[in-house]
Simulated assay, not measured.
Amino acid sequence: MSNTTRRTFTISMLALLAACGRPQQASKFQRYNGPPITQVHINKGQRRMHLLSGQQVIRSYDVSLGNQPIGHKQFSGDGKTPEGVYFIDRFNPRSAFHLSVGINYPNEQDRAFAAAHGRDPGGDIFIHGRGPQGNYLFPQARDWTAGCIAVTDQEMEEIYAMLLPHTPVVIRA
Rank of each mutant, 00 (worst) to 15 (best):
A150Q: 02
T10I: 14
H50N: 06
A96W: 10
R130Q: 10
T38P: 02
I159L: 05
Q154K: 10
V63W: 03
Q24G: 14
Q140T: 14
C20P: 00
G129M: 03
D78I: 06
R48C: 05
Q24D: 11
M49E: 04
G123M: 07
Q109Y: 15
G118M: 07
V170Y: 03
R59W: 00
N3C: 11
A141F: 14
P36Q: 09
S2K: 13
N43C: 10
G123V: 09
C148K: 01
Q30L: 14
G45W: 07
F138W: 15
R22N: 09
I58A: 08
P69M: 14
H50Y: 15
T4Y: 00
A115L: 15
D120V: 09
Y105N: 00
H128C: 08
G131C: 03
E155M: 14
H41W: 15
R111W: 14
K44S: 00
S53W: 01
I37S: 02
Y160C: 01
Y136R: 11
Q133C: 00
T167F: 03
L14M: 11
R130N: 04
E157R: 13
L16A: 12
E155W: 13
F75N: 05
A146C: 10
N67D: 15
G131W: 00
G123R: 07
I159K: 04
R111E: 10
D124T: 08
I58M: 10
P23F: 06
F9E: 13
M162E: 02
K80C: 13
T81H: 11
T10H: 11
Q24E: 13
R111L: 14
G34P: 04
A150L: 00
S64T: 05
V63S: 09
Q68G: 12
K73E: 03
T5E: 10
R142S: 00
G66V: 09
A141Y: 11
T4I: 12
T167H: 06
G54Y: 11
M162V: 06
N92H: 07
G118W: 10
R142K: 13
M13P: 05
Q39L: 07
S60I: 08
G122A: 15
S2C: 12
I70V: 14
G102T: 06
V57T: 15
L65D: 01
N67A: 11
G79Q: 01
P165A: 14
G54M: 07
L163M: 12
R47H: 10
L164C: 08
L99D: 02
S2N: 15
C20F: 08
G123L: 08
L14V: 05
G122F: 01
H117K: 10
E158W: 00
A18R: 00
I37L: 05
R31H: 08
W144D: 04
T5I: 14
L163P: 04
M1S: 13
N43F: 06
I70A: 15
G147D: 13
G131I: 01
M162C: 04
G123A: 12
P35F: 12
Q74H: 15
R48L: 09
Y160T: 05
Y32N: 08
G66F: 06
A141N: 14
F9V: 15
C20M: 12
Q56F: 10
D89T: 10
G45H: 08
Q140F: 15
P35M: 12
G21Q: 08
Y160N: 05
L65C: 05
L137Q: 13
I103E: 03
R119Y: 09
F126C: 00
V170L: 07
V169S: 01
F138M: 06
C148N: 01
S27A: 07
Q39F: 14
V40K: 01
G77W: 00
